[in-house]
């Protein structure tokens, strides 16, 4: 207690006299990164965090969906030699396999598109190149997901 008061008194003696008064005001120091009218609206979101999380969650689901798919298509019951229009018709007669394939299509396409987006961001150095590669990627992804979804929902086993 006594040490504090004595040191405070010491400061008072040496530094107590202010350099500034009403006629000589202290310079105003602006806060770092102060938002002004010219500051563009913040575009920061948690998009990359959600993307990172999506890769892991969809990855776990895809391990089951895709390895099951490979087992059915390439290993069981004669492997690839049994596949044909009739085989597809037989499987898509069941809503279970329709939903399986639909989930696999969407998750795999989004997982792959986000992966390729990362690869493009890493290696395409010119702004224009990066932009157009990603536009190409997004266009191809949307087209493929919509085409696949349409095929699953409009499949007609009796078209011939």
């Amino acid at each position: 207690m006594s040490a504090e008061t004595s040191s405070a008194a010491a400061i008072g003696e040496v530094e107590g006299a202010s350099l500034y008064d009403t006629d000589h005001p202290a310079p105003l120091i602006e806060a770092p990164r102060k938002r002004t009218k010219k500051t563009p609206k913040s575009t920061r979101t948690n998009f990359e965090l959600y993307g990172w999380m999506f890769m892991r969650l969809s990855g776990i689901v895809l391990v089951v969906l895709v390895l099951g798919h490979l087992l059915i298509q390439l290993v069981l019951d004669g492997g690839v030699s049994k596949i044909g229009f009739a085989f597809v018709a037989g499987r898509w007669a069941s809503p279970f396999w329709q939903i399986w394939d639909l989930a696999m299509l969407w998750l795999a396409m989004l997982h792959g598109a986000n992966g390729l987006r990362t690869v493009i961001n890493d290696y395409a150095q010119r702004d224009n190149t990066r932009f157009w590669l990603k536009m190409l990627l997004y266009t191809a992804t949307v087209f493929t997901v919509l085409l696949g979804t349409l095929v699953i929902f409009t499949f007609d086993p009796n078209m011939r």
Binding site: F85, G148, V151
Partner: peptide
């Protein structure tokens, strides 16, 4: 996905 989409074209194409 493109080759599977051929089931909507015709059984023969697929």
């Amino acid at each position: 996905v493109l080759d599977t989409a051929l089931v909507r074209v015709s059984p023969e194409a697929y």
